[in-house]
Simulated assay, not measured.
Amino acid sequence: MNTSVFAPWDDPGEKPLIQFRNVTKRFGEFTAIDNLSLDIFEKEFFALLGPSGCGKTTMMRMLAGFETPTEGQIMLAGQDIDPIPPNKRAVNMMFQSYALFPHLSVWENIAFGLRRDSMPKHDLEERVEAMLRLTRLEQFARRKPHQISGGQRQRVALARSLAKAPKLLLLDEPLGALDKKLRQDTQFELMDIQEKTGTTFVIVTHDQEEAMTVASRVAVMDQGQLMQVATPDRIYETPNSVYVADFIGDVNIIRGRARQNGGDGYHIDWAEGQEALTAASDNGFDTGQSCHLAIRPEKVAITAERPSDAANAVQGKVHDIAYLGNLSTYYVELPNGIIIKAQTANTRRISRRSYTWEDPVWLSWTATAGVLLAN
């Protein structure tokens, strides 16, 4: 999704489709959602991302009407949805298991909810055919679920969920049952269908790559709280905490103490006998304040000689190499035992690799490559 064009969250005049207002949800003594407030806008593909037990599924179940908030309000299109039963909400939910009827054909599975709503026959037929076209299932219309692949069953569940034209579609780990290659293909199909229909999608996933691929914005959650809500590029490039930096992608985190170095520059004292590192940060740090420097491995250069003009350069030896086909990650051990990862693109054949185990190497990065974090 082109977030430079589509960014209703940056427009103060835009009214959110969904508003969580100071929502808390308790199960006995356990607080699953802790005083959480969040706005989700129309036509967004919004991802709730976090480890098991962080509260993301509870949020989704409250939107669907299967749970009610202990405190606070959830608004859908300006209306408090708490009193509205699940079947009367303009919300549909697609489950990880797909929950298709095994004895009904693909066509009948998609038509099921429309029949329950007593839609006139002609309109129903038109709607089912439109959903089959949208999900590219026309040729499978007469087959039963067991006669089609997992990826096709996933599309049937999606077509059935969209048939009733909900304002909001909830997707609970929808690609969990698919293998990696099919997952990736299906992610792009989901994005395409979401854009074509203009339906607001909220997806729950613990797969960071999936969230970063499909979503217009991602909410990273932990223990019932929102850690950061932002576009995927902001979450990756400017995480607001060590938790978010560490949860999304691969990262090096170096602990130290900050010393001001004029303007937004800082020196970081981080290891006995090592030169101070330099970093820039818009967030203010007091001299002596403990800090964490988060640097993505692809922003760390690896060379045999010390680069003459690098803002930060440390020497170590290659401890391990992870070969990922298109990339290699070098795990470099510094004299003080800290390991820093550097990633390079494999543009040449592996037999011509420049560095191997135990080689002495220099790692370097710019003053703006890392993000300086307080916690």
Rank of each mutant, 00 (worst) to 15 (best):
P335D: 13
V332W: 01
T329H: 14
E298V: 05
N346E: 08
I321C: 08
N346K: 05
A342G: 14
D309G: 11
Q343Y: 00
G325E: 05
A310V: 15
L334E: 12
P297T: 08
R349Y: 10
T347R: 08
H319I: 01
K341A: 14
T347Y: 11
I302W: 06
R306L: 12
G325P: 03
K341E: 12
G325N: 05
V314T: 03
S328H: 00
K341H: 11
R349G: 07
N326G: 14
A311Q: 15
G325D: 04
Y330I: 01
Q343D: 00
P297R: 07
A304K: 13
Y323R: 09
A294S: 14
G337R: 04
P297I: 06
I338D: 00
Y331L: 08
A304W: 08
I321A: 09
Y331N: 06
T303Q: 07
S328M: 06
D309L: 13
S308V: 15
L327C: 04
A294V: 11
P335G: 10
I338M: 14
E333D: 03
A322K: 04
I339N: 01
N326M: 10
D309W: 09
E305L: 11
Y331A: 10
G337V: 03
I295E: 08
A345V: 15
K299P: 01
G337H: 05
I295D: 01
I339W: 01
I340N: 02
T344H: 14
R306M: 15
A294W: 11
R348V: 10
Y330V: 01
T347E: 08
L293S: 04
E298P: 00
A310S: 15
N326F: 08
G337P: 02
V314S: 07
I350Q: 12
I340C: 02
N312G: 13
N346R: 09
A301C: 09
S328W: 00
I350G: 02
I295W: 04
K299F: 05
G337E: 06
G316E: 09
P307V: 08
G325K: 03
R348C: 03
N326S: 14
I339F: 01
L334F: 13
V318N: 06
R349L: 11
I339Q: 04
P335A: 14
Y330W: 03
K341W: 02
A345N: 13
S328L: 03
Q343C: 01
I340F: 07
K341L: 12
Y323G: 02
R349H: 11
A301D: 10
A294T: 12
T329E: 14
I321D: 09
Y323I: 10
A342Y: 08
N336R: 02
N312D: 14
N336I: 04
Y323L: 12
Y323A: 06
P335E: 12
G325F: 04
K341N: 11
L334D: 11
K317F: 11
A342T: 03
S308K: 15
N336K: 03
A301Q: 10
T329G: 02
L293E: 03
N346T: 04
L293D: 03
R348L: 13
A294Q: 11
I295T: 06
A345D: 12
I340P: 00
S328T: 12
